[in-house]
Amino acid sequence: MDTLYTIITYSENFAGILNQITAVFTRRQVNIESLNVCSSSTPGVHKYTITCYCDEETVHLITKQIEKKIDVLQARYYTSDQIFIQEVALFKLSTPKMLEQPDISLTIRQHSAKIVEVNETYSIVNFTGLPEDIDSLYTSLNTLDCVVQFVRCGAIAITKNRRELLDEYLEKINNL
């Protein structure tokens, strides 16, 4: 059974590593659902948050093959219950349609999304939540035929583990 896995990877801040990481997915023919890269809380270390649907055996192999790359510090995979995961979405909606159909603003309120800009042509809605909540809001708004543009960022995630595995690794390696 394919499950949504989130692979959290840390690497040195060198050029070309993202390419090396995504190539592992390509070889195994697994599609990346979302990808976020940013600097981590450790100076000089980059964090990659990658989600994909596959079986556990595959995600296990992918994770090990990512970690094998020389400049990758650590790669671990998680199911959604092991992490706190959030995603941001932006919707550009037609203002005339919003005025015509009160259901649109009702839907926005029900999802606790925020209207951040309004003019006579369009309105922009910002929503932060779980990936599936974004799916749900998008589906609802789309049914009301008011979405002009839609964009979402890659999922970002923080582990619920009480231990900080990267810090433990760096401490261990520095003590060698």
């Binding site: 400049d71 390696i173 060698l176």
Partner: peptide
Amino acid sequence: HVDFIRSYR
């Protein structure tokens, strides 16, 4: 003389 890379074991 490189004989240690922290991301490489």
